[in-house]
Amino acid sequence: MSMQTGLATSTTQLRTYAPATDVSVAAPAPRLEIARAEPGTAQRNLRTEPGPIRFIIIALAIAFLSVFVVLPLVVVFASALSKGVVAYVAALAEPEALAAIKLTLLIAAISVTLNLVFGVVAAWAISKFEFTGKTFLITLIDLPFSVSPVISGLVFVLLFGAQGYFGPWLQAHNVHVLFAVPGIALATIFVTFPFVARALIPLMQEQGTQEEEAAISLGASGLQTFFRVTLPNIKWGLLYGVLLCNARAMGEFGAVSVVSGHIRGETNTMPLLVEILYNEYQFVASFAIASLLAMLALITLVAKTVLERRLDEAEVPDGD
C-alpha cells in the first residue's frame, strides 16, 4: 500500500473506522497507522527520521519482500517454463489439469456467490441494527480465521462422513457430500465466509443509517432502500471482499485436502494437484499449475490496488 495515499487521506479516516471491529482482515485497516503520523502532531514522524535510518528501513523492507515474495514467484515461473513453452502448455492441457481448473472455478463460483449473499446480509444486520448477541455473531463470523483449516475439513468429515452424524442417512438416500463437489464447496465456504462480511462491516458502520432513514421517511420500501441506497454505497467495499474471498477460495489447501478424497480428474482442486504432481516427480506440470495460481494472485493484487483507490474516493468524496 502506498504511503502517499495513506497520508493524503487526512484524519477523517482515523475517526471513521471503528477500532472495535477492525481485527484481522487485511482490509483498509493498516492505513490507520500511517494516517496517525500526521505532520504537525507531537509524535515523531517517519518522514523526519534522519536519512540513513530511512534508507536502512526501506532497504530492509525491499530485501524482505524480494526474499519472501519476488524470489518464490520467479522460481515458480522459471520452473514452470524450464522445459519450454510447449511443455508448459501441454502440462496445462492434460485432462487432469483441466479437470482441476474446472473444479477450482466451480468451487470458487459457488462459495463466492453464497458468501456474497451471506456477507451482505450479516454486515447489514450487524451495522444497521441493534440486537442482543451482536458481539457473539461477530465472533462467530471471525471463527474460520482462528480455526486451523485442517480442523475445518475434519468437522465436515465428522458431520457428513459415513461414520458421522448425517452420514448414514445421506448414504441411504444416495447423496454424496463428502469426497464430492458439495463437501469441497462446504469446506471452502466455511473457510472463506468472513471475507465479505469483514470487508463490509467497518464500511457500513461508518456510513451509519442516516441515508437509509431518509429513504424510508421519503416512502421507500425496505428492498428499495437496500438496492438504491445501501448497495451503491458499499459496492467497492463489496467487490474488495469478493476479491479476497475468491483468492482464498481458489487457493485453499488444508480444508479441501481433508474432504477431497483425492480422486484423479474428479475431486482434486488446483492446489491439491500441485502437490500431487510434485510428488510424482512431474515438476514442470506441478509448477505450471502453481504458476496459474500465482497469476491469479497477481491479478488479485492489481485489482485490490485499484479497488483500494476507489474505496478511498468513495469514502472521502471531498478529499483534500
Partner: peptide
C-alpha cells in the same frame, strides 16, 4: 478407472468415511 492415492492408512480411513 479413477484413481486416488495417499498414505495407506489414511486412504483406508477415507473409505471408511464414505469414499466410494
Amino acid at each position: 478407472i479413477k484413481q486416488s492415492h495417499g498414505g495407506s492408512g489414511s486412504q483406508a480411513r477415507s473409505v471408511i468415511d464414505g469414499l466410494q
